[in-house]
């Protein structure tokens, strides 16, 4: 009884969560320039306009580059921290880990303005894709650590000890024994970091140079009513891409858990 009432609530809640995303394709295929009901008819011309928009292609290119670099660097740092986290303790370990995880709860605008001050006023650097990458690595590393912690902490230490006893060095034991076990976690972490970076706007808006990232470009479009249907079409593609990426990430995360031989107990965090 109680469960079924909750289930209805849960489904209504999911509907609330998905409401905006479900509207997206409706307006992307709607043959009208105003984003409102009633609908005007079916068209694919907004998707066609995406193909011919040079500024958009540049922005997408920038964002893909930033997201890829972010995924690589954040995951590298995440592997270090998660591996260290699964090893013996040392003085200050808890505090250091907490500090590295801090961007998870810090308002993004604080990260953005503090980095802007250092980069522009102190170091007098030109803003570029790399300044955004630096900030995105900072905010993605905690997510990467959260995902990889699951992967590293579930490894039986006896496996590595056995490899060492059988004559492997620390590095080759890591490469041959530990790494294959955490590869799914690494892929999952890279996909999540990629998705976060690709979608991140608040920091990118402050740190973007002369070449806008895709969210910054979309932000500019949102002010012009005429360009809104194109934004809807772009959004539809992005949502589809994100879902594919996340589903792949989830698949690898679960495979990693299965490889470590443990029961799945929850999501990414």
């Amino acid at each position: 009884m109680k469960g079924s009432g909750l289930k209805i609530y849960a489904i209504a809640y999911l509907l609330f969560l998905y409401a905006p995303i479900l509207l997206l394709p409706i307006f992307a295929f709607n043959d009208g320039t105003i984003i409102a009901f009633p609908l005007q008819g079916f068209t694919t011309k907004w998707f066609g306009e995406l193909w011919t928009n040079k500024a958009l292609h540049d922005a997408v290119g920038n964002s893909l580059f930033i997201a890829m670099m972010t995924a690589i660097f954040a995951t590298l740092l995440g592997v270090c921290a998660a591996r260290a986290g699964a090893m013996a303790s040392f003085p200050g370990k808890k505090g250091i880990t907490g500090f590295i995880m801090l961007p998870l709860v810090l308002p993004e605008i604080i990260v953005a303005v503090s980095l802007l001050i250092v980069l522009r006023q102190v170091l007098d650097m030109q803003l570029s894709n790399w300044t955004i990458i630096m900030a995105h690595v900072l905010i993605c590393t905690p997510f990467s650590i959260a995902i990889l912690n699951g992967a590293f902490q579930n490894i039986d230490p006896a496996l590595e000890e056995a490899a060492l006893d059988l004559g492997e060095t620390r590095w080759s034991a890591f490469r041959l024994v530990i790494l294959p076990l955490v590869v799914p976690g690494i892929i999952s972490s890279m996909l999540i970091s990629f998705t976060i970076s690709l979608d991140e706007f608040i920091i990118a808006f402050f740190l973007t140079g002369s070449n806008p990232t895709m969210p910054v470009y979309i932000w500019g479009l949102l002010r012009f009513p005429a360009s809104l249907p194109v934004v809807m079409a772009l959004g539809t593609l992005l949502v589809t891409l994100s879902i594919v990426l996340l589903a792949t990430a989830e698949y690898f995360r679960r495979r990693g858990l299965a490889r470590a031989g443990i029961k799945d107990s929850g999501g990414f965090l």
């Binding site: 590298l76 591996r83 260290a84 986290g85 090893m87 013996a88 370990k93 503090s114 980095l115």
Partner: peptide
Amino acid sequence: SEGGRAALLMAPPFAYALLLLAVPLLAI
């Protein structure tokens, strides 16, 4: 010691957070 190796591994992410988070926060 294993704790020492863990500390060495923790150093790069810690240094990164120090440089890109702690220093900017002080600057602000």
